[in-house]
Simulated assay, not measured.
Amino acid sequence: MLYDSEVRALRLTMLERAIVTALFKQRNKPVDRLQLAAALGGDLENFDLQRVDAVVSRLRRKATAAGISLPLHAVRGTGYQFQT
């Protein structure tokens, strides 16, 4: 579960939790898509990096639907970061 400052909860899938954990460990620093792909597991040689984007997009939609504002930002040409 992911909670915001108003204690609203967002249930995360295993993939979403892996992305959030990787981003939170490096908060305020960009995390490249390859690092996020490694957090998702699997064979990095054949990993489609657009899968990372799909998980992030799904996470953003779920948070918005739950009324939660995620401090998750895209970093052009790199990946994503949590800004706290």
Score class of each variant (00 low, 15 high):
Arg51Pro: 00
Arg61Asp: 15
Phe47Thr: 04
Leu40Ile: 06
Leu49Arg: 05
Gly79Arg: 00
Arg17Asn: 09
Ala38Leu: 01
Leu40Asp: 03
Val7Trp: 11
Gln26Glu: 15
Pro71Ala: 12
Asn28Arg: 09
Arg61Lys: 15
Pro30Ala: 15
Ile68Thr: 05
Phe24Trp: 15
Ala9Trp: 11
Ile19Tyr: 07
Ala54Glu: 10
Ala39Asn: 04
Arg11Phe: 10
Ile68Cys: 08
Leu23Glu: 01
Pro30Cys: 11
Arg61Trp: 08
Ile68Ser: 01
Thr78Pro: 01
Glu16Met: 10
Leu44Met: 10
Asn28His: 00
Gln50Leu: 10
His73Cys: 06
Arg76Phe: 09
Gln26Thr: 08
Val55Ala: 07
Lys25Gly: 08
Lys29Val: 02
Leu70Ala: 04
Ala66Trp: 03
Ala22Cys: 12
Gly67Cys: 11
Ala66Asn: 11
Arg76Tyr: 14
Phe47Arg: 00
Ala63Pro: 03
Phe82Lys: 00
Tyr80Val: 03
Phe47Glu: 08
Leu2Thr: 11
Glu16Ile: 07
Ser57His: 04
Ile68Gln: 06
Phe24Thr: 09
Lys29Ser: 13
Ile68Val: 14
Arg76Ile: 12
Val20Ile: 14
Arg51Glu: 00
Lys25Cys: 11
Arg8Thr: 15
Ser5Pro: 10
Phe82Asn: 05
Gln35Leu: 13
Arg61Phe: 12
Arg60Thr: 02
Gln26Met: 12
Ile68Gly: 03
Gln50Pro: 01
Asp32Ala: 09
Glu16Ser: 04
Phe47Asn: 03
Glu6Arg: 13
Ser57Phe: 05
Ala66Pro: 09
Ala74Gly: 13
Ala66Asp: 13
Arg17Lys: 06
Leu36Arg: 00
Gly41Tyr: 08
Thr78His: 02
His73Ala: 06
Thr13Asn: 11
Leu70Val: 06
Lys29Asp: 08
Gly41Pro: 01
Arg76Gly: 11
Ile68Phe: 07
Lys25Arg: 09
Arg17Gln: 14
Asp53Ile: 07
Leu40Thr: 00
Gln83Asn: 05
Asn28Ile: 05
Asp48Val: 05
Ala39Leu: 09
Glu45Asp: 12
Gly77Lys: 15
Val20Arg: 00
Arg11His: 12
Gln26Ile: 10
Ala66Gly: 10
Lys29Ala: 13
Met14Leu: 02
Leu70Gly: 00
Val31Phe: 11
Leu36His: 07
Val56Pro: 02
Arg51Tyr: 07
Gly77Phe: 13
Leu36Ile: 09
Lys62Phe: 06
Gly41Ser: 09
Pro71Gly: 02
Leu10Met: 09
Ala39Glu: 10
Gly77Asp: 13
Gln83Cys: 05
Thr64Arg: 11
Lys29Leu: 06
Ser5Cys: 13
Val31Cys: 06
Val20Glu: 08
Phe47Leu: 04
Val56Met: 02
Leu49Ser: 01
Asp48Pro: 04
Ser57Arg: 02
Ala54Pro: 03
Arg51Gly: 00
Lys25Pro: 02
Arg33Lys: 14
Ala18Ile: 04
Gly41Ile: 06
Ala66Lys: 13
Glu16Pro: 01
Val75Met: 06
Thr84Ser: 05
Val20Lys: 01
Thr78Met: 11
Leu23Thr: 02
Gln35Val: 13
Gln83Tyr: 07
Val7Pro: 00
Thr64Glu: 15
Asp43His: 02
Gln26Tyr: 03
Glu6Thr: 10
Leu12Cys: 02
